[in-house]
């Protein structure tokens, strides 16, 4: 089932239902496996990236770009996070300190143990994106889920055409994944970085992401935009992308909602009849338009 955007290009984020259940919990999908923190990167003052490996030395699971993991601390609880990266025997999640659990996670050190279950949800449509130009638009911690796709695409570089990353945050200090933005990615893809306000340590572009997006005037021709960030940024960027000629089928975003089970049962992450944990988190704008406005 694909939708046509009029140019003969069709993108649909909802592929086969998430029946495959590639985790090591054996029978009960709500039981986490134990992972050890094998690395911590301080991205910003309130974002840390945790590299996790199973206590058995194995990778907990192999997610597709955009999929989610439920991460837990025995005495605090669990919450859903996007998986931003993966390696041979690890997965990585970048976590912003916003509440009780994330506060406790930020206190952890390398060698500490936590619980992980997943992977959950659908994923970015990496097959359908082949042979296309890709424009990644991120704001703040919103680059974390998109990064899983950027890294995948760079790993399969020959399958995709022109790549551009447009990313911004409140300040230079608040830019996440600085090593990628300033060392690893330039040369491999277009990098367009902006911060909200002038500051002495920053000589790059200054301004909000939606305005910078408009300024850059990317061609919508054979291009798919993948966007994630604060709701207000997404709202204005969608207007800009529409004005630039991007169809709703060629704009993809990834959503967050409060989740408890992660397997489409507990009820709270619904938008209409869809569950973000199972049918999402990745949706095209065309698909979102079909759902009630409760995002």
């Amino acid at each position: 089932m694909t939708k046509n955007n009029g140019n003969g290009n069709a993108i649909n984020s909802s592929r086969t239902p998430a029946v495959a259940h590639d985790c090591s919990c054996e029978s009960n999908p709500l039981v986490p496996t134990l992972c050890e923190i094998i690395g911590i990167t301080e991205e910003t003052g309130d974002v840390k990236t945790f590299r996790l490996r199973g206590t058995d030395g194995q990778k907990p699971f192999s997610p597709m770009p955009g999929q989610l993991a439920m991460i837990s601390l025995p005495r605090t609880g669990e919450a859903m996070f996007s998986i931003t990266s993966q390696g041979e025997d690890w997965i990585e999640s970048s976590i912003k300190r916003v509440g009780e659990l994330t506060e406790d996670l930020h206190d952890l050190e390398v060698g500490d143990i936590l619980g992980v279950r997943g992977p959950y949800g659908n994923h970015f449509p990496v097959e359908e994106l082949k042979g296309k130009n890709l424009l990644f638009v991120g704001g703040g911690i919103g680059l974390a889920p998109i990064r899983s796709l950027i890294l995948y695409v760079l790993d399969h570089r020959e399958d995709y055409l022109r790549l551009d990353v447009l990313y911004g945050s409140r300040s230079f200090q608040d830019l996440v994944f600085k090593a990628d933005l300033f060392e690893n990615w330039p040369g491999l893809c277009g990098t367009h970085i902006t911060v909200d306000a002038e500051e002495s340590c920053w000589d790059g572009h200054v301004g909000f992401v939606p305005n910078y997006l408009e300024e850059k005037a990317f061609s919508p021709d054979n291009c798919v935009a993948v966007i994630c960030g604060p709701p207000i940024m997404i709202k204005f960027c969608l207007d800009k992308l529409a004005a630039m000629g991007f169809s709703k089928e060629n704009i993809i975003t990834t959503l967050e909602m409060r989740m408890k089970c992660g397997i489409g049962k507990c009820g709270r992450c619904n938008i209409g009849s869809k569950y973000v944990c199972l049918d999402g988190p990745v949706f095209t704008l065309a698909e979102l338009d079909e759902l009630p406005d409760e995002k």
Binding site: A18, S27, P29, L30, I263
Partner: peptide, 9 residues
């Protein structure tokens, strides 16, 4: 609990 991908054990 029993349909749509996951089974609630």
């Amino acid at each position: 609990f029993l349909e749509k991908g996951y089974v609630d054990s």
